[in-house]
Design a protein around this nucleic acid. Structure first.
Length: 324
DNA sequence: AAGATTTGACCGTT
DNA sequence: AACGGTCAAATCTT
């Protein structure tokens, strides 16, 4: 993955802009269709439009990311994440079993809380299964929360230094939701993630997509570098100690897996969630797409910025007004 | 036996 | 000091 030269980058930006414009046009058509689906709109179906939109966005994002990755990831947060893969700062990385020299030596872990990392939050009706394998490392009662919060980290934390983590909190709404917060980027690669995402194949499914950041200013678009849209095909049992309550609501949800880091650095990796019973997966930045009425839910939550002043809100105008 | 989960303790932040 | 995130020994699962 080499970054394009100056001329190329302007060409790429142009291409990205074109793709975004195209996407917006498709979205507009789609809006019309949803607003008045009694009328004949020619041969273009909603599914086709959705596919076009996704393709355009994917292309554009991919182009943008190939050109600005170094900037996007140059932020302190990312730098920290990258560093900690190989430096010795985080003692945890230097080998899992640090026997208890706890009491006397300084602090046991010497760990630093990771703040300033990009975070992505998604709320779904059931625990997310995203294709990455996670290992639960903690659970905590949270103030004013009826249910405990579960903490997961990437299974490849040690073999690949992947520092991605996620937290799952069951909300206490009438219809309990699972609020999943993804923190940091996956630097690992999971073979399982098939690079495809075919809306057409998943009628009725919903992908929620939401970003949130604890960064001070604008949230940069995570590198959806290759945007491996994944369709989850395997099911893990969500064995959250406390998050098991979800009933058998319609099958799976499908998520896009923004490979939050350029992939060139990490080698191929593992496969299926090795965990037989329990951790379930997740994803990062979650998208949601539904072909049904719940479609609005996904778009509604889009709130992200692209480094370089591309504001998705502006570009796509995904406000209520576009919702159906 | 290896790897995952549980859970109380530790530690940083507010 | 309270809260929340992480560690790691003990325990469980495969």
């Amino acid at each position: 993955m080499e970054s394009p030269g100056p001329e190329n980058s302007s060409i790429d930006l142009k291409k990205a802009a074109d793709e975004l414009v195209r996407g917006r046009e498709s979205a507009t058509q789609l809006q019309i269709i949803f607003r008045d689906n009694t009328r004949d709109h020619g041969s273009v179906t909603a599914d086709e439009l959705i596919a076009r939109i996704l393709k355009s966005f994917t292309e554009a994002i991919s182009v943008l990311n190939s050109g600005v990755s170094s900037e996007v990831f140059g932020d302190p947060a990312t730098a920290e994440a990258g560093l900690s893969c190989c430096d010795g700062q985080r003692t945890e990385d230097s080998g899992e079993k640090r026997k208890k020299q706890v009491s006397t030596d300084h602090r046991r872990g010497g760990y630093k809380r990771r703040k300033m990392l990009e975070t992505y939050i998604s709320t779904t009706s059931k625990p997310i299964e995203d294709g990455y394998s996670w290992r639960k490392y903690g659970q905590k009662e949270i103030l004013n929360a009826k249910f405990p919060r579960s903490y997961f980290r990437c299974t490849h934390r040690h073999d690949q230094g992947c520092l991605a983590t996620k937290q799952v909190q069951k909300t206490e709404d009438e219809t309990p939701m699972y609020r999943t917060t993804y923190i940091g980027h996956h630097t690992c690669r999971d073979v399982l993630k098939a690079p495809q995402f075919l809306m057409d194949d998943i009628p009725g499914e919903c992908l929620v997509f939401g970003f949130e950041s604890n960064l001070t200013t604008k949230q940069e678009l995570p590198s959806f570098s290759s945007l491996p849209y994944i369709k989850e095909e395997y099911k893990e049992k969500a064995a959250f100690t406390d998050l098991t309550a979800h009933d058998n609501q319609s099958s799976s949800e499908y998520f896009l897996l923004p490979d939050l880091k350029p992939l060139e650095s990490s080698g191929p990796t593992s496969v299926l969630p090795s965990t037989p019973g329990s951790d379930y997966g997740d994803v990062s930045g979650v998208y949601s797409c539904c072909s049904h009425s719940s479609f609005d839910m996904g778009i509604d939550s889009i709130d992200c910025m692209v480094d370089g002043s591309v504001d998705f809100d502006d570009v796509f105008k995904f406000d209520e007004e576009i919702l159906f």
